[in-house]
Design a protein around this nucleic acid. Sequence first.
DNA 1: TTAATGTCTACTGAACAGGTAGAGTTGGTC
DNA 2: GACCAACTCTACCTGTTCAGTAGACATTAA
Lengths: 149, 149
Amino acid sequence: MISQKAKYALRALTALAQADTERPLMISEIATQQAIPKKFLEQILLELKRNGIVESRRGKQGGYLLLKPAQDITFGEILRLIDGPIAPLPCLSQTAYRRCEDCDGEHLCEIRHVFARVADASRDVLFSTTIADAVGGVEDARALDLAIA
Amino acid sequence: MISQKAKYALRALTALAQADTERPLMISEIATQQAIPKKFLEQILLELKRNGIVESRRGKQGGYLLLKPAQDITFGEILRLIDGPIAPLPCLSQTAYRRCEDCDGEHLCEIRHVFARVADASRDVLFSTTIADAVGGVEDARALDLAIA
DNA sequence: TTAATGTCTACTGAACAGGTAGAGTTGGTC
DNA sequence: GACCAACTCTACCTGTTCAGTAGACATTAA
């Protein structure tokens, strides 16, 4: 399971991606729109800012903006930022590798082989899908809804 | 990340799969061989027993045996048993579905679409790979090691 | 100058991870 | 029929993480 925090982060980013690229979106706007506790969202956006995903303007008329285009922000990137390693085992992490001290020889570890395939499959999806894809996909669905109704 | 407990469970099962099918393997044998804290392993095996994966014999000469053939025990099954739902979001779980109360309309949820693909990819691997596969795969590797040496 | 914004640090309560401890039960074996 | 090696069960413990909450502070447009 991904954390609530990561889910909030991804939703906040989709909100920013859908917004006007000129006018910053306030924390409170995003919080209300996406039903995220405001003070919690504050911390999340701060973290995204420190990692160069969004930028902020302070003071009146302040708020948040995407720093990169939405099609350059992948799900994997955000997930790794917020939740840490994607890998199902420490010895399979690309960013935080740690040897399992209880298995002798990684290519002899029965478990590792299997989870390596799981990790590859997940990463394939996560790093090839962007915030823009997500927003686009749903706009298609919404249009279809309208057409049917 | 999968829990340490799940990793231990999978290793214990590979140990049982590799052992003689007649003579039960004692908790302490598995614990020593796989470097698992004995009392913790006890609880794990008990849980596997309650769920019909292994059987036990009490008293002297007692121990544990696989209840089903190793090729009928999938990684997904064990993982779900020990760690709970495989899905990255509660609203994608097959066994413990729970609606996200903060998103309106699941097919309009930007996040859900993406993680549905991740979940499918993971389940593909996890439910098509068995304990027997894992043991077999490593025996191949071990044979190769010997051939090289 | 002031009011509306983001920034930062600290705290908290509940749940979960990863075990440990110890009393109890069962069933071969002598 | 006693003994002892095994499994069984319940309880407990310590540390960490999750999901927030609180509140003082800094900045800036109007």
